[in-house]
Simulated scan of single mutants.
Amino acid sequence: MTLTTVIDANVAASLASALDLVTASAPLELNTRITMPSGTTSGKADLCWSDTRTVAASSTDALDLAGTLAGVLGGTLTIVKLKAVLVRAAAANVNNVRVNRPASNGVPLFLAASDGIDVLPGGLFLWVAPGAGVTVTAATGDLLNIDNSGAGTSVTYDVVLVGTSA
């Protein structure tokens, strides 16, 4: 089984200001493409997992990257090196989707335990480290928590994880 991963990030913006005789503009375009061919060494990936998930109000969805994620083609995935994470919050969410490193057994995606980032409704979080990635250690550093930031309503999110099996 082979995996080819292409991650594109594009930002295009144009700032314009009408002056007396002309309109001044400042266009911006930043495009980045990261390609990871199939493999387990630096710059490569051989595992990809994705899902649309819902987290109940004030709850946590603990993603265990070492041995509990069901593969799309069968079997269970065990990610050894995490290379990319994409979390997209549904626009209809009322609460934020919180991506974080749990205090116990967290994947060292963020600097310290309990660090994380809120993904506001309609927003996304994208992290990519195509080289070495971060090490996922079964039972001691294999959890990525996705929390619902508040009470009252559930949140829905899409998630994509890319990594290696060795």
Rank of each mutant, 00 (worst) to 15 (best):
P130F: 02
A24D: 07
V136C: 01
A13T: 04
A45Q: 13
S114C: 00
L86Y: 06
V155S: 04
V128C: 08
I7H: 10
V6D: 00
T76H: 07
T60R: 12
I79E: 15
V128E: 00
F125I: 00
T52V: 07
T156R: 07
G141K: 03
L143P: 00
S38P: 11
V85T: 04
G67V: 12
D20S: 06
L82N: 12
L109I: 06
N100F: 12
M36K: 04
T135F: 02
R98V: 14
A90P: 07
T76I: 15
I146Q: 10
V94Y: 00
G71R: 11
V11M: 11
T153C: 09
L109G: 06
T78C: 04
K83M: 10
T135G: 03
S42Q: 12
A138D: 01
V128G: 05
A70C: 00
W49A: 10
G75R: 10
A45G: 11
I146M: 14
R98H: 13
A138R: 02
L144Q: 09
A139H: 07
T153N: 05
T137E: 05
D20R: 06
S165A: 13
T135I: 01
I117T: 15
P130A: 03
N96G: 00
A56T: 08
A113G: 09
V55R: 02
A113H: 00
D61G: 12
W49H: 14
P121E: 00
Y157S: 04
L28K: 07
A132C: 13
S149K: 02
A70V: 07
L65F: 08
D64T: 14
T76E: 03
S104I: 07
A70P: 01
M1K: 14
S14F: 03
A91V: 08
T5P: 05
A89W: 04
L69H: 05
I79F: 15
L73C: 09
A24S: 06
A26Q: 14
N95Y: 01
A139Y: 11
N10M: 07
G123H: 09
T164I: 09
T68I: 10
V6M: 02
G116C: 01
T41A: 11
S114V: 06
L120N: 06
L161G: 04
L144V: 06
L111N: 05
N100Q: 15
S59Y: 13
F125L: 11
V136L: 04
T40G: 06
A66T: 12
P102W: 15
R88C: 04
N148C: 12
D158Y: 15
V55L: 09
R53K: 06
N31T: 14
L124C: 08
S165G: 09
V162P: 02
T164N: 02
T40C: 08
P27Y: 04
A45V: 15
L120P: 04
L82C: 03
T156E: 13
G163F: 02
N145Y: 07
Y157N: 13
G74S: 11
D64Y: 05
L126N: 14
A129W: 01
L30F: 01
T164Y: 05
V107N: 11
V134E: 01
V80E: 13
P102Y: 10
T32W: 03
L161I: 00
L69K: 14
